[in-house]
């Protein structure tokens, strides 16, 4: 066994590289990617994971080898060689991480831009909400106003200011195909559909459409997170934040509150149902029928929220009772306020 160290180093390097690349592609650490951009974020994660695995194996391997190879032998009280540094080596290990993080930065920037994070319409200096409403098609406007309740539609009450989220794709100037208003409150999500005036406790959206969520909060900070969309946005009282995305895989995915919002924070969950176009049409019809039948959006909201907590029984069963007792006055309050 007299293999030269250079050969061993080379073999180890190749092995670490292959392992990193393989793990980068086959880690299965992330849940299913259900939006167009989620797959791009996963690509970024896989690249960073491959680099991290490689660097970890390098450092860890050197430490373990040093601990074995350079351990003190019994009776050896001498010191190691007096090496104080090595400028080329130090330049190398300054330059390599610098290049790596620059590469990751550029890659992240690209993905972020592709997601719509740099949407110029999507920051605090952006068009005043009143102007935005005026710009939108008539049906949208009336929908928005209807959804925001009779009091709000009557006066020009101070509009919330917009804060940045994730906006339109670069170059996309058209408004989203569909806008849903999302309201976080202790401890539920309320979704208002300006197109129909419907209100629900679960989010229903059609697959493949450009969806915009206008997110706000009633009481404290919440955060809207759908792990399968790789999207998260804080809901901030007094502000509206935005998420814009296109889903790609129909299905039912959890909506999780990710910002500590009080004692029932862990229970503040619901789901998003990504419908096929036909299914979505059916759901929309059912909502319209409900609206016509009852004629009272408040009642519908209450019905749908309590329905939501029932269908989520697997998760909420143990405390569904406490939830609805806790929630109902809040809900009513919320609906009256908005």
């Amino acid at each position: 066994m007299n293999i030269p160290t250079t050969i061993l180093t080379l073999i180890a390097g190749v092995a670490i590289t292959l392992l990193s690349l393989w793990l980068g592609q086959n880690n299965h650490l992330l849940p299913i990617a259900a939006t167009d951009n989620a797959a791009s974020v996963d690509g970024l994660f896989n690249a960073m994971l491959a680099i991290s695995v490689g660097l970890f194996c390098l450092v860890q391997g050197l430490i373990v080898i040093a601990a074995i190879k350079f351990r003190q032998r019994p009776g050896d009280e001498t010191d190691g060689p007096p090496i104080h540094g090595n400028i080329p080596l130090e330049i190398l290990w300054t330059a390599i991480p610098a290049v790596l993080v620059l590469g990751i930065s550029v890659y992240s920037f690209e993905i972020y831009n592709q997601m719509g994070g740099l949407d110029p319409m999507n920051h605090s200096g952006h068009i005043k909400p009143a102007a935005q409403i005026a710009m939108q098609p008539e049906s949208m406007t009336s929908g928005l106003l209807a959804a925001s309740g009779p009091e709000a539609s009557g006066d020009a009450a101070p509009q919330p200011n917009f804060a940045a989220g994730v906006g339109a794709k670069p170059g996309e100037m058209a408004p989203a195909d569909m806008t849903v208003k999302v309201m976080g409150l202790q401890y539920a999500w309320l979704f208002t559909y300006p197109d129909t005036g419907a209100i629900s406790g679960e989010l229903h959206i059609p697959v493949g459409k450009d969806i915009e969520l206008d997110i706000s909060a009633q009481d404290v900070l919440h955060a809207f997170w759908v792990p399968q969309f790789r999207l998260k946005q804080d809901a901030i009282p007094g502000k509206t934040t935005q998420l814009r995305f296109v889903t790609s895989v129909p299905g039912t995915y959890p909506i999780v509150c990710a910002e500590l919002c009080g004692s029932y924070h862990g229970a503040m969950r619901t789901q998003v149902i990504v419908h096929t176009p036909e299914d979505y049409e059916l759901w929309q019809q059912s909502q319209l029928a409900l609206l016509e039948g009852v004629g009272d959006p408040q009642a519908i909201a209450l019905a749908s929220v309590s329905a939501a907590s029932k269908t989520d029984s697997e998760f909420l069963e143990p405390f569904a009772e406490a939830m609805s007792m806790d929630m109902t006055p809040e809900m009513i309050h919320q609906i009256h306020a908005s």
Partner: peptide, 14 residues
């Protein structure tokens, strides 16, 4: 370094 990357941090933040 991973969580410094904005697109990834949007997923794993909190």
């Amino acid at each position: 370094v991973m969580v410094a990357s904005v697109p990834f941090d949007i997923h794993v933040h909190d």
